[in-house]
Nucleic acid binder design. Structure first.
Length: 566
RNA sequence: CGGAGUGUAGCUCAGGUGGCAGAGCACGUGCCUUGGGAGCACGGGGUCGCAGGUUCAAGUCCUGCCACUCCGACCA
């Protein structure tokens, strides 16, 4: 491709809307253009990258035996009502009506649609297993779209769904997808981690996330360098055993005057105790209106996901000041003793002795509190958020914490959707059974952003070889110089003959502008045709390190074969 | 959804106390130049987010709305 005939629209300055590197460079280099918040057009360069990623995914999905389909974006409300998600999915589901006032939704995911297809077509165990996938645009009315392609309202996703006759077989399908995902992310050239994850609203038995390691990512994960355990902090088990404090003799319970001492930090200072001897009492209101109290050690953070899972709730919130008042509670001085709402404890306070809690009375705390002497929780559960330094639940080594971007998520769904939609099959024994499902997503457009987040420098993008829009960038530095142009054209033709995706910068602009654009666009390999041609050489430069080496013009073809294996 | 902020040329932005709509970059033409976003000259480009209001006069003041960005909540 010749740049003079292509669509290269770079920007010198950072658009005001962009904050994170991927957003900045994808806009500046002319890969994408914003249409509305969280909605982008892919320009020719951007589409090439998107297609490259799609094709790598497609290749591995096909190899794994999955079958590509294309489901509709526009889906009837009836299907969503059958599984209950018309109500549960909430505001994130884009809803619309047709001219007959019938309800529809723009698909944010396709469990309903694919299960509907399967229930209509699959009758016997002989039809199974099946794995359908599609690469398609998804719609989610995000509360807050942000960071360019990282969190959009319209985005491209690969979603796959497996259907098996038993959980045992479904686990096999799940394992095949897990391996396939590893192959995909390796081929994309990204530094990633597979982590144990929470199933969230999709539901199911267990799941894994694939997270591309980037600083300041949205996914918080802990991992163990010793044994390889890795998990999203939402899902990470907290290995409280090694974090236990030494046993102490129980001291008599005492109520102390603590004027205006509310937060853990206040209590720490006022009573001169460590945060791990203080117990926080958090009041939550579940989605059915039930208030609950949850106790966590002062130095630990509560994990709301674990609480939701424990109560089987979809939503909950910390009690507001008004709600606290209605329940007769004193903000800042809530405690479990004498509380008449159910009290649950995180395992961090199991075996804790002589600790501090609020006294349910303004300006008073209890000290030397002990369980079960002074109160007895309904249950003691792992409600904690794992954090750096916590012992690994597998091998007890200290965990490391890091952040990343979730680009893939696989779920063993079980029969949640097949039962709701009555997707059954007749087994060998002649009995009708629900199909056992799994679902597998990859954020295709988010991968573009993730790749840039992970691979860029102060000058622009540095694509990995397999996803770069072009693999070779030829810079003809002076278009008025016939000699330069002839040699550049010649190298361009040789490259094309070798099947290399090549971009020739033949625009009549200054050399500096060409270099700046080339850095911004981030094509991995570059040949510079400039004044060196007088001495029979051109330069070869890698975007990664910008190191230039001179090579004789007549050995360019061999060099290209060496790099691109032509 | 709560909090904060911003909307003026394609982009980045300036336009005290109301008084002819601006700059740099980008774009077009010409000259000149060709190894890290060159220079000179001329030129085109505006519903100042939208709608009301105050005023002789509104980019500027007032009211409402909309859009966008950031922080938070939320996020298969």
């Amino acid at each position: 491709m010749r740049a003079s005939k292509y669509f290269i629209k770079t920007m010198k300055e950072t658009p005001a809307e962009a904050e994170v590197p991927s957003h900045v460079y994808l806009l500046r280099a002319g890969y994408i253009k914003k249409v509305a918040a969280g909605i982008y057009s892919y320009l020719p360069l951007g589409l090439r990258v998107l297609k490259n990623i799609e094709n790598i995914i497609r290749k591995h999905m096909d190899e794994a035996g999955a079958l590509e389909v294309l489901l509709p974006i526009l889906t009837p409300a009836e299907l969503w009502k059958e599984t209950g998600r018309w109500d549960v999915y909430g505001k994130e589901l884009f809803r619309l009506k047709d001219r007959h006032d019938r309800d529809f939704a723009l698909g944010p995911t396709h469990e309903e649609t694919i299960t509907d297809l399967v229930r209509q077509t699959v009758r016997s165990y002989k039809d199974l297993p099946l794995n359908f996938y599609q690469i398609q645009t998804k719609f989610r009315d995000e509360a807050r779209p942000r960071y360019g392609l990282i969190r959009g309202r319209e985005f491209v996703m690969k979603d796959a769904y497996s259907f098996d006759i038993s959980e045992e077989m479904a686990i096999k399908s799940y394992e095949i997808m897990k391996e396939t995902y590893h192959k995909i992310f390796k081929e994309l050239g990204l530094n990633y981690l597979m982590v144990e994850a929470d199933v969230g609203a999709i539901g199911g038995k267990y799941s894994h996330e694939f997270v591309v390691m980037v600083p300041n990512g949205e996914a918080h994960i802990v991992y163990c360098e010793n044994c390889g355990y890795a998990a999203n902090v939402e899902a990470a088990k907290y290995e409280f055993e090694l974090d236990k404090l030494p046993p102490e003799e129980e001291k008599p319970l005492e109520k102390v005057y603590t004027p205006d001492v509310k937060s853990v930090e206040d209590v720490t200072k006022f009573l001169n105790v460590k945060p791990n001897k203080i117990v926080k009492t958090l009041i939550y209101i579940l989605d059915d209106g039930t208030p609950i109290a949850i106790l966590v050690r002062g130095d630990r953070e509560l994990n709301e996901t674990k609480v939701l899972n424990y109560f089987g709730a979809l939503d909950m919130h910390l009690a507001t000041s008004e709600e606290m008042e209605k329940l007769g509670l004193v903000e800042g001085f809530v405690g479990p003793i004498g509380l008449d709402i159910p009290v649950y404890a995180d395992r961090s306070i199991e075996d804790l002795h002589n600790f501090v809690v609020g006294a349910n009375e303004k300006d008073y705390h209890y000290i030397n509190v002990n369980m079960p002497r002074d109160f007895n929780p309904v249950d003691i559960v792992d409600f904690g958020t794992a954090t750096e330094g916590d012992p690994c639940p597998v091998c007890k080594s200290p965990l490391k914490e890091t952040t990343g971007l979730e680009v893939g998520h696989i779920f063993l769904l079980g029969t949640k959707y097949s039962e709701a939609l009555k997707a059954n099959f007749v087994d060998k024994d002649g009995k009708e059974k629900p199909i056992v499902m799994g679902c597998y997503g990859i954020g295709v457009s988010r991968l573009i952003a993730a790749a840039v987040e992970q691979n860029h420098d102060e000058n622009g993008i540095i694509w990995t070889d397999n996803i770069a829009p072009f693999k070779l960038h030829i810079l003809a530095l002076n278009t008025k110089d016939k000699n330069i142009m002839e040699i550049a054209e010649n190298i361009y033709n040789i490259s094309r003959g070798l099947g290399i995706e090549v971009l020739l910068d033949d625009r009549d602009i200054s050399p500096g502008a060409k270099f700046k654009d080339a850095d911004l666009i981030g094509i991995p390999y570059r040949i510079i045709v400039g004044k060196g041609v007088k001495n029979g050489v051109v330069e070869f430069q890698r975007r990664k390190d910008n190191e230039k080496i001179e090579i004789p013009i007549d050995s360019v073809e061999n060099k290209l074969k060496e790099i691109f294996g032509g």
